[in-house]
């Protein structure tokens, strides 16, 4: 496929539009979200996602999720080759609907957590994590 100057310009505009949309991720990540939510609307509150603003190494990034009253939480790394990270299903003996783990991020990207609440509604939280490339491969 060849790009004309106009096509390239249009692509650039498209990219600009994408970046200003409040919640737009790549198609693969969208699929993971759609499978979990069935396309339902998501509230912006009721779930907390904690991740470092800058990760010293993308191989091991500590993240924590918490959504009081949730039955399940999924974690998505929108910029990874396969965006799904984990799904936490909380049982009756979970003392809180929260968990933390360590994840791999292929580069600077948005990490998304979506909770399914007991009433079937959904809530999401987004955190941007900058992944640094160190000077020393060592």
């Amino acid at each position: 496929m060849e790009f004309s100057r106009r096509d390239t310009l249009a692509l650039g505009l498209g990219a600009a539009v994408v970046t200003v949309l409040p919640f737009s991720v790549n198609a693969a990540a969208d699929d993971v979200i759609a499978t979990f939510t069935g396309g339902a609307d998501m509230a912006d509150s009721g779930i907390e996602l904690t991740a470092p603003e800058i990760a010293e190494n993308g191989n091991t990034v500590p993240v924590a999720v918490s959504a009081p009253g949730a039955s399940a939480i999924i974690l998505i790394a929108t910029g990874n080759p396969t965006p799904g990270v984990a799904q936490f299903n909380f049982g009756p003996l979970a003392a809180s609907q929260s968990a933390s783990t360590r994840i791999r991020l292929a580069g600077t990207q948005d990490v998304v957590a979506i909770a399914q609440m007991a009433d079937g509604s959904f809530a999401k939280a987004i955190a941007t994590v900058k992944v640094t490339i160190g000077g020393c491969g060592g």
Binding site: E56, N57, N59, T60, G134, G135, C136
Partner: peptide, 24 residues
């Protein structure tokens, strides 16, 4: 100081062997 995005240490080896996040 920084060398690119890496914060340079004194290169001390009192912590070796070291678990590196880079290669887990």
């Amino acid at each position: 100081n920084m060398i690119r995005a890496d914060h340079l240490s004194q290169g001390q080896i009192n912590g070796f062997p070291v678990y590196r996040l880079k290669n887990s």
